[in-house]
């Protein structure tokens, strides 16, 4: 009896750490991670105490009536926003509560969720470029500027994806993306088209904006997770700085005033 309890708590503990790390790396806020972990743990009648660091999750599990106890910590390896994973895990945690899934079933489901494919690359490139063109229109651009922004976003995002594949530092990836996009848009201004292209140049890098880090930063700050909020905010500022650096490089190359 004693040994089966020990294996259960070990399995559950490592499972919960997996859940926490997957949520943290796909861009969930701290309160959501804590909520999900606690929800699954309480379905198995365990008390769960978590600490969520900027790049790590650690937790303690115990049961009141016996002394099975688990302590563990795990750190993150790769980051990339993945809303499909967050919503999948949220659904899974409700299934655990309602349908009483076993630990093995949860493991299988987690593996399935983490193997779910992203959208096809061409669709991502096309729709993100379309969203760049919409930004250009909304900030007051005309049809020609929209076309230029579409092309610039397409090339910028392509360069960034390639840089991510080659395992560059994440801020370098953003820098390369911003540089490629603004070089493309700037080329049309340099070529001397007889219209004002400020909007195209300003909106061609918007696909890189750190929306998720910045929004999560404030969500964490409001919830009182000050440390994580500050870390995410500074991460967002670093990304914004990389974008600005890419723009500045292009402007100096083309010698814009």
């Amino acid at each position: 009896m004693e040994s089966s309890n020990t294996t259960e708590v070990k399995d559950l503990g490592s499972l919960l750490l997996d859940v926490g790390i997957m949520l943290l790396s796909s861009g969930a806020s701290c309160s959501r991670i804590r909520l999900t972990i606690t929800r699954i743990a309480s379905a198995f009648n365990y008390h769960c105490y978590t600490t969520i660091g900027p790049k790590s999750v650690s937790l303690t599990l115990n049961k009141e009536d016996d002394n099975s106890l688990f302590n563990g910590m795990r750190s993150i390896n790769q980051q990339g926003v993945n809303l499909k994973l967050i919503s999948g895990i949220s659904r899974l945690s409700w299934d655990v509560v309602i349908k009483n899934l076993s630990i093995q079933q949860i493991k299988t489901e987690l593996n399935r969720l983490s193997a779910l494919p992203h959208y096809p690359r061409l669709i991502i490139l096309f729709l993100v470029s379309l969203s760049g063109a919409s930004f250009c229109y909304l900030f007051g651009g005309n049809a020609i500027e929209m076309l230029i922004t579409f092309g610039a976003t397409f090339i910028g995002l392509f360069v960034r994806q390639e840089a991510v594949k080659k395992n560059f530092n994440q801020y370098f990836c953003v820098y390369f993306g911003a540089l490629a996009a603004s070089l493309f848009a700037g080329a049309f201004i340099k070529a001397g088209l007889p219209i004002d292209l400020e909007h195209a140049f300003a909106t061609c890098v918007l696909f890189l904006i750190p929306g998720v880090p910045l929004i999560n930063s404030f969500t964490d700050l409001i919830d009182g997770n000050i440390q994580n909020g500050m870390v995410r905010g500074i991460n967002g500022l670093m990304i914004a700085f990389s974008i600005a650096l890419g723009l500045v490089t292009a402007m100096h190359i083309y010698n814009f005033k």
């Binding site: 861009g27 926003v81 993945n82 809303l83 499909k84 994973l85 919503s87 999948g88 992203h118 959208y119 669709i123 991502i124 729709l127 993100v128 470029s129 379309l130 969203s131 760049g132 063109a133 919409s134 930004f135 229109y137 909304l138 696909f207 929306g211 998720v212």
Partner: peptide
């Protein structure tokens, strides 16, 4: 109405970039 339309596409692009589930 045009702006309504384009605001939607600006959001949709980011939904795809962040890998939002197709049903959303």
């Amino acid at each position: 109405f045009e702006k309504f339309f384009w605001f939607g596409f600006a959001a949709l692009g980011f939904g795809i970039l962040f890998n939002a589930p197709p049903r959303t």
